[in-house]
Design a protein around this nucleic acid. Structure first.
Lengths: 210, 210
DNA sequence: AAGTTTTTGTTGCTTTTGCAACAGAAAAAC
DNA sequence: GTTTTTCTGTTGCAAAAGCAACAAAAACTT
């Protein structure tokens, strides 16, 4: 069911078709939204990049998700379970569309093409989130820093159809994404280079086949 | 939207209402299903208990999810992303109902009450999976064994509305669920007892408030 | 273009975690 | 009810990861 659904086309065609939508601009480092109240917000990132982050009581930062243009996010996809607050932070200047899920389900249903289609597509949109979460889960259950790095690099390699690819964020953020210490990660990256498993020029990585 | 939806009632009322459903029995340690092919299977556990598990190439086992009666699972909720195979293993004798998502979406839609309602409820069902996944993610991003244990115990405590609760699986399985070494976990459990943070009698834990 | 901030790269030291191995307890199978 | 298997609890040792701190490079500001 996911295969015959094209998110990009969907977003392109309908991004401006409903009056209830709000478009906002954010500067780098601004907070786009926080997942606390039950506002059931649904957002589409039009340009820029942003991270869904969580800070625990020790101040450890975790990047839960990383968003690029056309990615969707919001409380609809992330039923908040615990006490930790979640923020979506702009990493670059961003344009974002805001909807609410309630509107999708009720108010607009009979008279707005956008919401009709969104309502239809919602299971697929949510399922694509589930895929992302599962992928992330698989990375986090890996037992060593080395395995996490190789797992993540393999994924990026598969996505870009190339052994060489550029990281979507800084090495500092990569550590927060993989839930590991940055300096330990740097050490392991060096070992991966020494062992001729990867090549690394800045944030561009090449997986070496053996 | 999740609040006004009752999964138990839903399952009770409709579990036998469609001809396309298959009911099967499994003995302890049998494999109920594996998430490989795109069969888009959708299952309901009627009795017993089961785990969704993954084995990596080092033989490390990860318990991705733990299922109790009335829990739902299947490929519909877990779009397989990588090469690792996933299995649902019966931990006790189990009764399971099998559907396929395609039927839900197409064949039955116009003439079967069960599939109509399932189709309506699917977004909510999937969202409840997302909640579980996010909870799990939050546990796995914790940086130490101690934090993972306390995090998980807090969760069980909140769910049972009590400071005292029984683990849903063995300590061996708990380690696989938290992605940590069992002996290291046992050591940490002992330290938690010594530090008077928990009490422990077998698989029953009490969180001590301070 | 100069100054400021963030990121990268590195290292010594400490703490945490994993591994291996084993004995006793408990549970399951026969 | 006895045997077999799994689970719990423990430990010494080795390996991995975290912490802290710093310098150089790069990226942003103004």
């Amino acid at each position: 069911m996911i295969t015959d659904f094209n998110k990009e086309t969907f977003i392109k065609n309908f991004e401006h078709s409903c009056e209830k939508v709000q478009k906002k601009h954010f500067k780098k480092n601004e907070i786009i939204t926080s997942y606390i109240a039950k506002r059931e917000q649904f957002c589409i990132l039009l340009s820029g990049s942003a991270d869904l982050v969580r800070y625990d009581f020790n101040g450890n930062k975790t990047i839960v998700e990383h968003f690029s243009p056309n990615d969707i996010f919001g409380e609809v996809f992330y039923v908040v379970s615990t006490n930790n607050e979640l923020f979506v932070e702009a990493k670059k200047n961003c344009d974002v569309l805001f909807y609410t899920y309630n509107d999708i389900k009720t108010q607009c249903k009979s008279n707005c093409a956008f919401h009709n289609i969104l309502s239809e597509a919602l299971p697929e949109l949510i399922l694509s989130k589930v895929t992302d979460l599962n992928m992330r889960l698989e990375l986090l259950t890996k037992r060593s820093i080395r395995e996490k790095l190789i797992g993540y690099f393999s994924l990026l390699s598969a996505r870009s159809f190339s052994k060489t690819f550029t990281l979507p964020f800084s090495l500092t953020d990569l550590a927060d994404y993989l839930s590991i210490d940055r300096s330990a990660m740097m050490r392991e990256l060096k070992l991966l280079k020494d062992d001729r498993i990867i090549e690394k020029k800045g944030n561009t990585i090449t997986l070496i086949s053996h």
